[in-house]
């Protein structure tokens, strides 16, 4: 098991190295000269040349990459191109904190709810309740986030006034406060995630119910409740772990629409801003952070899966 984790960690390092090269290469392909971009179209050629020299843009491309990578690993993420050229790291870290808070709340709502609905659906395969759950979750996921988000804002923020329409969660806010702030975007994200997790859980339950060990458990004389909770769910929920991990990656970097609808300062919005302004160092940093969390979430999911599955753990 320890060897398994070590091997997965080594693979994680390799994954990050390769993606960093890809990210760097892609940003190099963007059109336009960076120095001219920063200084503006009216800048004198000498000033542009001086800035190019200053930014290290004249160095060989491989050295630029290694410089950027060492900088990134040692915590020097460079400065943003936007006016005032603030250092990138604190900016990204602040946004990361916001994204993590929203992701955490979303998972706390969506995972128990979806797993519950999935289990109910799976246990009642093709009956009314199963069909009802499928129809509802699939209709909700079919609606774009800006529609569900705006409906929630209209009803609960503007109409009933229970929650704020735009979400901000300062780090020093109390827990109750930030849950109140984040509940509407979290519910919007839950609507998107729910269908996947429900489907996965439902399929897992249906699959496991067909296996002979369930008959063994029943014919031992165990009450139906024990058969389901102890024997079936123990195995049926394993694949769901992977789906949840993938969702976590999406929650960190992919909530662009939701963050915009609720004007929430998360990583997704930071990324769109960086792209709009061709702020290359910022883009690189955000993408690397998102990829890092994506990979870590997957690693944790795989290790958890192996820990809960003796067939892998004790292989």
């Amino acid at each position: 098991m320890i060897r398994y984790v070590l091997r997965r960690l080594a693979l994680l390092a390799i994954t990050l190295l390769i993606t960093s090269a890809v990210v760097f290469a892609l940003t190099q392909l963007l059109p336009g000269d960076v120095a001219r971009l920063i200084l503006g179209r009216e800048a004198r050629p000498e000033a542009v040349a001086a800035l190019r020299e200053d930014l290290g843009l004249n160095l060989p491309i491989l050295q630029q990459y290694t410089d950027w990578l060492t900088g990134f690993v040692t915590g020097d993420w460079g400065r943003s191109f936007i006016s005032g050229s603030p250092p990138i790291r604190p900016l990204v870290m602040e946004r990361l904190g916001n994204s993590l808070r929203l992701a955490a709340l979303t998972l706390m709502i969506s995972v128990p709810l979806s797993v519950f609905l999935g289990v109910i659906a799976g246990l009642n395969e093709n009956r009314f309740i199963d069909n009802a759950i499928s129809v509802v979750t699939l209709s909700v996921v079919g609606l774009p986030e800006f529609v569900t988000g705006l409906v929630l804002i209209n009803v609960f923020a503007l109409g009933l006034g229970w929650f704020p329409a735009s979400a901000t969660a300062p780090p020093d806010a109390s827990i109750g406060d930030w849950i109140r702030q984040l509940i509407l975007p979290a519910i919007t994200a839950t609507f998107v995630l729910m269908a996947y997790i429900v489907r996965m859980t439902r399929a897992g339950v249906i699959d496991e119910l067909k296996k002979p060990y369930v008959r063994t458990a029943t014919l031992k004389g165990l009450p139906r409740r024990t058969v389901i909770v102890k024997h079936v769910l123990r195995n049926a929920l394993l694949p769901t772990i992977t789906v949840v991990a993938l969702s976590f990656g999406w929650l960190i970097g992919g909530l662009i629409v939701i963050e915009n609808v609720f004007s929430y300062p998360g990583l997704g919005r930071l990324m769109t801003n960086a792209v709009e302004r061709k702020d290359i160092p910022l883009m690189q940093a955000v993408v690397m952070v998102v990829i890092f969390f994506f990979a870590i979430a997957n690693l944790i999911a795989d290790v958890l899966y192996a820990l809960l599955n003796p067939r892998i753990r004790l292989d």
Binding site: Y213, T216, L219, K220, H231, R234
Partner: peptide, 24 residues
């Protein structure tokens, strides 16, 4: 029936591996 199953009537199944829960 479950008071009889496993106590007064018991089954030895065909496929032993599949008939045992892999996780316990």
């Amino acid at each position: 029936m479950r008071h009889i199953w496993g106590s007064q009537i018991a089954l030895v199944p065909q496929d032993a591996l599949a008939s045992l829960n892999p996780s316990y």
